[in-house]
Design a binder for these strands. Structure first.
Lengths: 227, 227
DNA sequence: TTATTATATGTAAAAAATACACTAATGCAA
DNA sequence: TTGCATTAGTGTATTTTTTACATATAATAA
């Protein structure tokens, strides 16, 4: 009983963009200008063009919404519940990204589709359009798994950072405290950070040594990092 | 310079099905009856129906080609290079599965699309259609990663199996030898297998105790298993 | 100069991973 | 029926990794 189906699917990409802002783990949301879910917050996304690679589409969306390029972007999962999108079949290929919130200004040129772009606390999300809450939750889970394998947290930090800042990123994402000495031991022995001859200046108290990440090969599995 | 695109994408699912047969890791391939790549071997796949969930589509494909249900099936990755499919844009959501080859007979009802179904040795693949070689390679990589986290190898074994058989599956997938005592220690201490009061009979030599897997929760991350 | 605060550091104990070699049970052939 | 061949099954010592934990240091502000 095969039904001949002539209509084809629509395919979008949605990008879950994380950052740390004011000591909180945040996710970037846009407010929808149109139905369905008009007025609701959603993950930035858009239709994949007919001759556009999936990664390229996700990068384009990212750039359109945040002006950011050259970022850690990873395909997350493809969500295809036939009921996830009202009144039509839209399959979405979700990505996630980590960025530094300081060096970017939120922008959205396409006022016809979006009325607002804002960072939202991950543990205090508004009501979301579609299955976007599920996508964010899955994204968090995956980000935690990735963090154990490879130090993607550096994407959240400036080029030069202190080990305390790095540890703080880890603690935010993993949602638990880590021991300072063990953390430093592990980071330093893993050879993924380069010790600089510079120190923090501006703050009061003892200056902290600065470090930088050196030639990180992302996606490479280099044994486990933190668990 | 936005080009208005009215045509939409086609979406397929391809399922990489692994088994162990005659002591080799095998993958199921079908021979294409039509262009493109007429006569070439390919991963079994097909178009996702308009109101069909992705997982359901993959399960359907699996059943159509192998008559097998209730299997370990995991979404692998979505491949969307605009050039992966000649003359049209086809995005494919790939899955992978592990099955026991004994208790299934290969079948393909749709002779109009497939002329043959066969198991092929993973390390001796024929020339494949589309980007299917890449998909299989990625699938292998992912299967190895999964195996370290959760004992999916049991899908390759009969309900009752010996620890030697289990170890052999691991060695085949991981592509390396494991120490027998350490392997058994780890498996037994993990509490994932249940010792039975039965032994192998038919073979010559000392009979081996049989074990079974007990209520495996797949996809659950239970710490690491083998590395 | 003293108090305050964040930086920075090492060691001992516990747990996990690894390396490694012999005995046990059976079938088969002499 | 004995012993030879073959696969099953077992334990310990060593190394590596992970964890737990407390005090001295460098700067600023009062």
């Amino acid at each position: 009983m095969l039904i001949k189906e002539t209509k084809t699917h629509e395919v979008t990409t949605d990008v879950v963009i994380f950052t740390i802002k004011n000591g909180k783990l945040m996710v970037l949301l846009v407010r929808r200008a149109n139905e369905p879910f008009k007025g609701k917050w959603a993950i930035p996304g858009g239709f994949i063009r007919l001759s556009e690679d999936l990664d390229a589409a996700a990068l384009r969306i990212l750039k359109e919404k945040t002006n950011v390029q050259n970022i850690y972007l990873e395909q997350l999962y493809t969500f295809g519940d036939p009921l996830r999108y009202p009144n039509s079949r839209v399959i979405t290929c979700a990505y996630f990204a980590l960025i530094r919130s300081d060096d970017l200004e939120l922008s959205f040129e396409d006022k016809s589709q979006i009325t607002d772009v804002q960072w939202h606390k991950v543990n205090q999300l508004p009501s979301l359009a579609f299955d976007h809450r599920e996508i964010i939750e899955y994204s968090l889970k995956r980000m935690r798994e990735r963090l154990e394998l490879c130090p993607i947290a550096f994407q959240l930090l400036p080029k030069k950072f202190t080990l305390t800042e790095l540890q703080y990123s880890y603690e935010l994402i993993m949602g638990k405290k880590l021991d300072k000495r063990n953390f430093r031991k592990k980071v330093l022995s893993s050879k993924i950070v380069k010790e600089l001859d510079e120190y923090t200046k501006s703050t009061s108290k003892r200056p902290a040594r600065l470090y930088s990440f050196d030639n990180i090969t992302l996606n490479s599995k280099r044994g486990h990092f933190f668990s």
